[in-house]
Design a protein around this nucleic acid. Structure first.
Length: 104
DNA sequence: AGGTTGACCGTCA
DNA sequence: GTGACGGCCAACC
């Protein structure tokens, strides 16, 4: 899988995250690692940082339940607006964490 | 070509 | 709860 396709796969996956749910960078990395052999949270972060497209970027947050560094304000507003489960000012990962449906 | 940086993560103290 | 370290992989000097 070439890097281009990988980037697309990441964006595609992000686009599938339903409102009110989130995915951590690491979760995305692991999920794609299974199919592409590649994956690291940093890589996802890098891709997201450069590819500002029509994707719900705010649904991709850190593993500790806080939104991406520097985007906390904007992301938090969007997350709150779509009813993402929060807990003590952070996203409640236990409830909000989402994973793609298994391939049929 | 080599070093640094980044929308990061898990582990250990 | 916090802080330090190593690992990660592409982009960017």
């Amino acid at each position: 899988m070439n890097p281009d396709a990988y980037r697309d796969a990441v964006l595609e996956l992000v686009a599938q995250i339903p409102p009110g749910r989130v995915m951590s960078y690491g979760a995305i990395a692991e999920c794609l690692a299974e199919r592409s052999g590649r994956g690291s949270p940093r890589l996802i972060g890098g891709i997201m940082a450069r590819c500002n497209r029509d994707v719900p970027w705010h649904r991709v947050i850190r593993a500790n339940g806080r939104p991406a560094a520097g985007l906390e304000e904007r992301a938090l507003a969007l997350l709150r607006a779509e009813g993402t489960p929060m807990l003590r000012g952070r996203v409640d990962m236990r409830r909000a964490s989402w994973a793609p449906p298994p391939p049929a």
